[in-house]
């Protein structure tokens, strides 16, 4: 019995001590996309800095936004996409980090900082983490011509073989680019034309999908699908017949970046975390884990596998990137115009 009491006293003491350590210790609350970071990098960060990482994940930008806006939870570091970063800047939700505390910013490629200006003028609020393009994934055994244009998505020959992307802005970006317009267009006639094109496409489409495109293309369910480049590396690994191309008309380039919300309580820890994530070896670990392209040129230098280093999917040439544009947030009114038109397309 004595032994038991002693043991439980020890246990209680330990719990108390651990509890204290946790309470007093420095923390950083990170809110990131699901499956979007190598967990080992977080452990390394904790080891090196002594700051505890509290990690949470979200599914979509739109899930994250209301939580941050309402101030119900205060996160320190968040990783939204381009247009969402702009929306947060416009709604005065973001803090301007002190970049003296993020010296590793120098490893971020200038070209990406340049395209980030589209949504974050002057690169004042965000640090790019991952990026990619929107393109066509096709099964070489099921098409009989080289594919380099969005026109295959509107070709009756492939009726029932097309997996279109089920996301308003992406779908309109494709139609607008194919018609030769800006993918951030707010021009009514241009949008009407794009809508008409998508309406014509409707009967040819097998299904509108986002995540499912991966498995469907791997299984050979369709010949052509619209996909983000980050997924393309995975799919061609699973099914070697699948190839990815950024069509010649141009496409969307997206960037997810680290930001610090205004209501963050540990801003310096947040800056330390962002700085750590920009360190080349850490960026490389994350790239290996999630296979989404990294804007970190330091990490790119460290890649050993020549095939991946020169992969046109993961690291497209400047010639391809010149044809791509990032999304801008178009404001709430314009967003509902897009959605109304998209519903008209699907309401056939």
């Amino acid at each position: 019995m004595k032994k038991f009491i002693g043991l439980s006293a020890l246990l209680i003491l330990m719990v108390l001590l651990v509890g204290c350590a946790k309470d007093d210790g420095e923390k950083v609350y990170v809110y990131n996309w699901g499956e979007y970071m190598d967990p080992e990098t977080r452990e390394l960060f904790e080891e090196e800095t002594g700051i505890t990482v509290v990690y949470e994940e979200f599914e979509q930008n739109e899930d994250m936004y209301p939580k941050v806006q309402s101030g119900a939870v205060s996160y320190d570091v968040i990783c939204p996409s381009d247009y969402m970063i702009q929306k947060m800047i416009e709604n005065n939700l973001l803090y301007e980090p002190n970049f003296d505390n993020i010296p590793n910013l120098k490893y971020i490629d200038g070209a990406h900082l340049e395209s980030a200006q589209e949504y974050d003028p002057g690169n004042k609020y965000s640090v790019p983490y991952c990026w990619g393009t929107l393109g066509i994934l096709y099964n070489t055994t099921m098409v009989d011509e080289p594919i380099d244009s969005w026109d295959v998505l509107f070709d009756e020959k492939y009726s029932g073989e097309i997996l279109m992307i089920d996301s308003v802005r992406d779908a309109f970006a494709i139609a607008l680019k194919f018609l030769g317009y800006d993918l951030n267009s707010t021009n009514e006639t241009e949008l009407e034309e794009a809508k008409a094109l998508l309406q014509e496409q409707y009967p040819l489409v097998q299904a509108y999908v986002i995540d499912q495109v991966r498995d469907k293309m791997i299984g050979g369910e369709a010949a052509i699908g619209v996909i983000y480049s980050g997924e393309a590396i995975y799919t061609s690994r699973e099914n070697p017949d699948l190839e990815y191309v950024v069509p010649k008309e141009g496409s969307n380039v997206w960037i997810d970046g680290w930001v610090i919300p205004k209501n963050s309580k540990n801003k310096e820890n947040a800056e330390a975390f962002i700085n750590f994530m920009c360190r080349p070896d850490i960026a490389l670990m994350n790239f290996d884990y999630i296979t989404y392209s990294t804007p970190n040129s330091g990490a790119w230098d460290l890649i050993e596998d020549e095939d991946i280093k020169n992969s046109p999917v993961a690291f497209p040439s400047d010639e391809i990137l010149d044809r791509t544009t990032a999304f801008r947030y178009l404001g709430e009114d314009m967003e509902s115009v897009y959605i109304q038109k998209w519903n008209e397309v699907k309401g056939e």
Partner: peptide
């Protein structure tokens, strides 16, 4: 969404 391929709203 799943069985209609998002084609039917």
């Amino acid at each position: 969404n799943i069985l209609g391929g998002s084609k039917i709203v």
